[in-house]
Amino acid sequence: MGFKLLSKLLVYLTASIMAIASPLAFSVDSSGEYPTVSEIPVGEVRLYQIADGVWSHIATQSFDGAVYPSNGLIVRDGDELLLIDTAWGAKNTAALLAEIEKQIGLPVTRAVSTHFHDDRVGGVDVLRAAGVATYASPSTRRLAEVEGNEIPTHSLEGLSSSGDAVRFGPVELFYPGAAHSTDNLIVYVPSASVLYGGCAIYELSRTSAGNVADADLAEWPTSIERIQQHYPEAQFVIPGHGLPGGLDLLKHTTNVVKAHTNRSVVE
């Protein structure tokens, strides 16, 4: 069995187990497998329904001669939608809004960016022009300005110390501490036991640490421990890039980060 097929099978099995364990909360999309990078042309966006009122959005972007996937989250909030992270750029984010209108038909009224990198804030200006209120932590807003990236308009308070959590509509926002970046936030959907790890969490097929220019490698494993301790009931975990899975993604990420750190020390 090929690795790609095995990865998709694991996603399907995880979703099936969740649907059985929580039949009222989960209505997993039966329309197909989780979209992969090879299936999404740059400039297009796919939506994948995880649970009743919960979707991931998947886009792709060219970077350094390669094409990478990027995940975000959409959560229903009454007759409105909360968006977590842009679709990595203005063109993708405009396509995301169009796809949401086509498939869901509810307005996106608020959006949260989970850290300051372009795959999370690139497209904020498109959201703002569409009347979406954009939010991020003060740290993310400051770092985005320093980096020359787009800056969300509103500040999220109460997320300055490791372990801080605040309720934001249908989700809980959690600051686990520094990891992929010093400002990275985690998003949890309690009604569906869905954990969105953003770039602080890796997919299972990833074996290298990737972009760690703004990471705190020493603190990252401790931050992941905080996530595990705060959300032990999480059933569906979405990484910032690639295929979702279960809580095993947290341990896998820790292993990859520690291996990278150990290699760096040896070198």
Rank of each mutant, 00 (worst) to 15 (best):
L5I: 12
K8R: 09
L10S: 09
Y12Q: 08
Y12K: 15
L13C: 13
A19E: 05
I20T: 11
A21H: 02
L24G: 08
F26Q: 12
D29L: 10
D29C: 08
G32M: 14
E33P: 03
P35D: 04
P35E: 08
V42C: 14
V42N: 15
E44Q: 07
R46A: 11
Q49D: 04
Q49A: 09
Q49N: 02
S56F: 14
H57I: 15
P69W: 05
S70K: 03
N71G: 07
G72A: 04
I74W: 00
I74D: 01
R76A: 12
G78N: 11
D79R: 05
E80A: 10
L82I: 10
I84N: 02
I84C: 03
W88P: 13
W88I: 03
G89A: 12
G89Y: 09
A90C: 09
K91I: 07
N92P: 04
T93I: 03
A94S: 09
A95S: 07
E99H: 12
I100P: 01
G105N: 15
L106V: 09
L106Y: 08
V108A: 09
T109E: 06
R110P: 02
R110E: 04
V112D: 01
S113G: 11
H115D: 01
F116S: 14
H117M: 00
D118V: 05
D118T: 12
V124Q: 14
D125Q: 07
L127E: 01
L127N: 00
A129Q: 09
A136M: 07
A136I: 11
T140S: 12
T140F: 02
R141T: 04
R142P: 04
L143W: 12
E147G: 07
G148S: 11
N149Q: 13
G158L: 05
G158D: 12
S160R: 10
S160K: 10
S161K: 09
G163I: 04
G163C: 05
G163H: 03
G163M: 03
R167N: 05
F168W: 06
A178V: 09
A179R: 00
S181Y: 01
N184P: 01
Y188G: 08
V189Q: 06
V189I: 07
V189F: 08
P190C: 00
P190N: 03
S191P: 03
S191Q: 11
L195Q: 00
C199D: 07
A200P: 05
S205M: 13
G210M: 07
D214M: 04
A215Y: 05
A215R: 10
S223F: 05
Y231S: 04
E233K: 12
A234M: 11
Q235N: 02
V237Q: 02
H241P: 01
H241F: 00
G245T: 02
L247C: 15
L250H: 09
H252P: 01
V256D: 11
K258F: 09
A259P: 04
H260I: 15
R263N: 10
R263W: 03
V265H: 07
V265E: 12
E267C: 14
